[in-house]
Amino acid sequence: MLEAKDLYKSFGSIKAVNGISFSVAKGEVLGFLGPNGAGKTTTMRMLTGFLPPASGTATVCGHDMLSNPVEAKAQIGYLPENAPAYDSMTVENFLKFSAEIRGYRGKELQTKVETAMERCQLRDVQRQTIHTLSKGYRQRTCFAQAVLSDPPVLIMDEPTDGLDPNQKHTVRKMIKEMSSNKAIIISTHILEEVEAVCTRAIIINKGCIVANGTPDELKKKSDTGRLDDVFRSLTIGREESK
């Protein structure tokens, strides 16, 4: 459903993303792992059409992101890093705005917003302005915006970053519930998260894919059978990791 084809991107002399290709099928939850600065966010920004790649492209449900961006973007729900949202709006109005921009009107719009608020447990804060929300509510508001239109592809950049353990649990549960009929990508550097929700994981380092497989397959790459050790050995080299 989502395919990245040979993506390249550099900022000045830094090669942020250096030839990344992969695909995600329906029903898969792909974990996107890598140390800070490995190119996770840049890759996601290219997949969602925010950044134009220097070369390569992404296709979403058959729509090419470069030649047909509006159609391609319509298939994606995106939760950017740090959950940005319009601070002066109330939660409800913000969700109404995102529903409207995705083409919903009238009764249908109302239903979509209600469902999203119900699903992400935002009822208590629906009339609060976003800048008064705690981190957890803010994250869920932005999450609600992403899942509102029930898009076939969901891309989330560090969806559990900065949440308390209970909130993390809730978000993971929501991801799992939705995974059956969607293609989902989540980026993270929390390895336990990969084991908890992902069906497959990709590890990237310095803009290149260094491993791609199910969590169990990845674990076998290390003598100890622990994901931490695989991650360390692949991203900082075998010598240093010992």
């Binding site: 969602t48 059409g49 925010f50 973007k73 950017p80 940005p84 083409g103």
Partner: peptide, 8 residues
């Protein structure tokens, strides 16, 4: 980032 990744 949110605005420009919406279908507009």
């Amino acid at each position: 980032e949110l605005l420009l990744t919406m279908p507009i």
